[in-house]
Amino acid sequence: MTVNDLVGTLPLTVVAGQDRLAAEVTGGYVSDLLSNVMGFAAPGSVWVTMQGHQNIVAVASLAGLAAVIVAGGAVPEPETAAKAETEGIVLLTTPLSSFELVGQLYRSGVKGQ
């Protein structure tokens, strides 16, 4: 499954990284603590968070994540989108709550690791 498959089926908006949507999704992770994500998210995961600070891009890059999904209708800061674009990180948003989105991801076949 690719990020593009998820964008095609779930209510996700691409904020940055349009050219990286072919990335393979191998799992999922949800946390709003960046240090926790750095420590535990497996490479290739989609990460669901409500944090919109630009440091989410550094974390996604360090952890080798397939995409970051900012949930709950939260709006990433403008610097976050710009940084994601330069760093080649896929940044998505959704109006769904983290809980609802994770449920839909799981039903689509994205599992935790």
């Binding site: 240090s35 750095m38 420590g39 550094a58 890059s61 360090l62 760093e87």
Partner: peptide, 11 residues
């Protein structure tokens, strides 16, 4: 500390 080392390029 977390035990992680800095990544100069990213941070």
């Amino acid at each position: 500390r977390s035990g992680r080392m800095n990544d100069t390029d990213r941070l």
